[in-house]
Design a protein around this nucleic acid. Structure first.
Lengths: 128, 128
DNA sequence: CTACAACTTAAAGTGAGCTTTAAGTCAAGC
DNA sequence: GCTTGACTTAAAGCTCACTTTAAGTTGTAG
C-alpha cells in the first residue's frame, strides 16, 4: 500500500499520516525506493488513532497508547489506567461547561443598569 | 490610572490589556504624552471581559459584546441573543464530552485480542 | 542630574494539530 | 521516452489568546 492508498482507505490525509509518523505516533513503515509502503494493519492503526482522538486523547498520549498495544495485550493495564484518568479529565471538562452554563444563565437574568454595575457584579461572580 | 495600576486593580497583565486594545476588544484610552491613562470604569470593563471569558465567549465575540453595552442598555437584545446562542454551543460541547465518556467506557470494557481487531472495532464505532 | 522603574512599540515565540508551499524525485501509462 | 500524477522533504503558515523580547522613551525619587 502506498501512502495515498492508505490515506483513502483510512480517511486520513497523507499529510497527516506523515505528520503522525514524524512525531512518533505512527511507526516508520518500510520503503520502496524512498516511498512508504504499508501493510493492511496500517488501516486499523489509523482507525484506532481516530477512535482515541474521539475519546479525547491528545497525540502525545496516543504515542504512549499505541505502544501499549504493540504487545497484543487485550486491554492492558496501561490502557485501563489511561482510560480511567481520561474519564476524570472528561468529568472536569463537563463541570467547567456546567459552570459556564450557570454563568450565562445568570447573565440572561441580568438586571444591571450599566456597564459599571455589571462589571462590579462580574468581579463578585468571579471572586467566588 | 496608568496601565500598571489598572493591571493590578483588574488582575490582568498589562501586556494583555495592550493586546485586547490592539484587537479592538478594549477602547483606546486617553494618553498623557504617549502613555495610556484610564478612568475608574476601566476596571469594571476588565471584570466584564473576564466574566464573558468564563462564560465561554471568544475575544471576537466579546468585541461585539462590549459594544452592545456601551449604550448602557441593561441586558440588551444583543446580549440575550448571544447568551442564548452560547447556551446552545455549550449544550453541544456537553454532548460531545458525553459521547467521549461513552466511548472511553466501551474501551474500558474492550475484549479485543489484538490491534487489528480493535482497529476494526474502532472503525465500526466511528462509522456510527 | 542621575538612576531606575515603568512605560512604549513591533515582532517573534508558545502550544496543538495540522495544512500548505516549494522544490524536487519516482512510477506508470501511452 | 515523455508526460502526468503521486510521491519525497523541510519549512512555513494557520488558529487562539496571549507572552516574551528587544530596543527605545518617559516619569519620578533621591
Amino acid at each position: 500500500m502506498t501512502i495515498g492508498e492508505l490515506s483513502a482507505a483510512g480517511s486520513v490525509p497523507a499529510s497527516t499520516i506523515r505528520y503522525w509518523e514524524r512525531i512518533g505516533v505512527l511507526p516508520k513503515p518500510a520503503r520502496s525506493s524512498s516511498q512508504r509502503r504499508y501493510g493492511p494493519d496500517a488501516v486499523n492503526r489509523l482507525h484506532l488513532l481516530r477512535l482515541a482522538q474521539a475519546c479525547g486523547f491528545r497525540l502525545d498520549e496516543m504515542r504512549h497508547l499505541l505502544h501499549g498495544f504493540e504487545g497484543a495485550i487485550p486491554a492492558s493495564r496501561r490502557w485501563q489506567e489511561m482510560a480511567r484518568k481520561k474519564q476524570v479529565e472528561l468529568d472536569e471538562q463537563m463541570e467547567r461547561i456546567r459552570t459556564m452554563k450557570r454563568m450565562v444563565d445568570s447573565v440572561l437574568r441580568c438586571q444591571c443598569g450599566d456597564l459599571l454595575e455589571c462589571g462590579r457584579r462580574a468581579a463578585a461572580v468571579l471572586g467566588t
